[in-house]
Simulated assay, not measured.
Amino acid sequence: MQAALSPALQAKLDVTLALLHQIAAEHGPAVFANSLGAEDMVLTDLIARHEIAIESFSLDTGRLPADTYALMQQTRERYPAQPVKLYFPRAESVEAYVNDKGINAFYESVELRKQCCAIRKLEPLKRALAGRQAWVTGLRREQASTRTDMAPEEWDDANGLRKFNPLLEWTEKDVWAYIKAFDVPYNALHDKHYPSIGCEPCTRAIAMGEDIRAGRWWWENPENKECGLHARK
């Protein structure tokens, strides 16, 4: 039996489910890029609960917080029919970067940070998307200034396939209302003022009143705060 949701959230949920079913039917094989954030746990639950034919993967950069790994295991146990396949960076690329630039070189410049993201995220992403017709994300419009003009369906030039953002119009309040209603597992760091979670050294808690993305790459300007996974022309 479905838990009670507000009429407004139920309407958004109906639109999201219709899009997910359409993706599976018309753009397969499709895959869900699961970062294990709150939004992505909503999509994990929806895809599993409604048995939608969309596979799931996550990028293990090698520098994720311990709480994220704990959620990986919890997700595996909660949704055995919806396994999250893990992709890792090439060991030789990580070794070359660390030995040449330093273990925490990403703090030194935007260029070095983006090089690290390219090795730990972008290259594994390309392998995860290989042979797919579409990929699904948990991006929301209100998350960042870099995401305000996104559309529910876009063409991803960098990877040469369709990209869908089914939760684009959901608010943070919507996400947590769904998680509470369906008892969806989530990262324990969210309860410690981490609304957005990435690699451990690149993520911090935020203070009251700060933007929800303020804890990601906090030493950089807001317009630079993307790793390249969602680069757009």
Rank of each mutant, 00 (worst) to 15 (best):
T44V: 04
E123L: 14
A8Q: 05
L139D: 08
A70I: 13
S93K: 14
K85T: 15
R76H: 07
R49I: 06
P65V: 00
S196V: 03
L64H: 02
P83D: 03
R141V: 05
C227T: 07
K114D: 15
Q143S: 06
N99F: 11
L167G: 04
P80Y: 06
T171K: 01
Y194N: 07
A188S: 12
Q115K: 14
D191K: 02
I212R: 15
E26F: 06
P7R: 06
G28H: 09
A177V: 04
T148I: 13
T68S: 11
L5I: 06
D191M: 01
Y194A: 05
P83F: 04
L139C: 09
E226H: 02
A33S: 07
N221C: 10
I179C: 10
A11V: 07
A158G: 09
I119V: 04
D157M: 11
I212N: 14
E223D: 15
H50E: 12
E95S: 10
E226D: 08
A66I: 12
A24G: 00
K12G: 11
R147P: 10
G228I: 01
E95K: 15
M1C: 13
M72E: 11
T171S: 10
L125Y: 02
E220D: 13
I47Y: 04
E154N: 03
P124Y: 07
E26K: 08
A181P: 08
A144S: 15
Q82Y: 13
K180L: 10
V98P: 07
G209L: 03
T75F: 06
P80A: 08
K163D: 02
Y87D: 10
E226W: 04
Q2Y: 11
E26V: 02
V31E: 00
Q10M: 09
K121T: 10
K173Q: 15
